[in-house]
Amino acid sequence: MGSKKRQLAMVFDLNKCIGCQTCSVACKMLWTRDEGTDYQWWCTVNTIPGRGSPRDWEQMGGGYKDGKLSMGKAPERSDFGGGWDFNYDEVFYGKSAEKVPLRVVGEQPDWGPNWDEDQGGGEYPNSYYYYLPRLCNHCTNPACVEACPSGAMYKRDQDGIVLRDESACQGTRKCAEACPYKKIYFNHQRGISQHCIMCLPRIEDGVAPACARQCPGRLVFVGYLDDESGPIHKLVSEWKVAVALHPEYGTKPNIFYVPPIGPKPINDDGSIDENRNRIPDELLEQQFGPDVHQALATLQAEMAKTKAGGQSDLMDILIVYEWKHLFSEFTVDPVDIEQEAN
């Protein structure tokens, strides 16, 4: 391993995301099944517009303003929701099981992951929404690392993954305050915070992270930002069609998104307005910053090219004819990994 600093990144093509939560569940099954992690979903998919997971996270501050750390607050447990107990015994083994629906036992929740699913925005027939998968952004300027008073958090040189030494974490939750994306969770059982580790053990064995590998839509690209032959570099740096979420937060995220084009609006007479998009430009700019407009323009121009019978390298990348094209060198099959006994 050389000393060269590299940065792993991911690109989510939101035009292909169907909100199936397979990424969320893949992550859940792999990483957050232990005690204290019941409510933790390191990967979540939310319907936009919506209040998000955790609830109203975009109003909680953190990140950087004018190059200086900006104060934030940690979400409350109820802002995440989830981690509920269900009436499994009653449904699976009870006498009147057929009549009993699966439901939360005890205090009834009023929020949870993707609670406002598919509410969306706009008025019929011009309703709109899109799905936004979110995980730790493994930022180039990680506010969490700078805020940690315990020296527990760090960013690896070789791949830029933001990690936490759990033996040094004192559970101060300064990271959760400072992270503007509110993707850090507190483990009440262990008294430490936890977050996405970009499936580090898989990465080290050449396997793509679980959220990416399991995605049925084949919409998650993985690779190094500086790998000019890989799709990440092409989408982020060459075509500039993949943009960061809330770049104004100042942390330089390394999870990028191909913004959603969405359907065209329908006019009162039932005709289609080819000149506008249903998803408001202001919403996309609020989410992805001003660069989103050029990204959308490029996408639409390249789509038009192929519609007219032409060829587009960009469309070929986004179509992903072969799943291995998503993952640069991270195409090893997990079943081929020799597991070391603990």
Partner: peptide, 10 residues
């Protein structure tokens, strides 16, 4: 003497 600039500022 707090060990992070964030803590000092906050």
């Amino acid at each position: 003497r707090q060990p992070s600039a964030y803590v000092q500022a906050a």
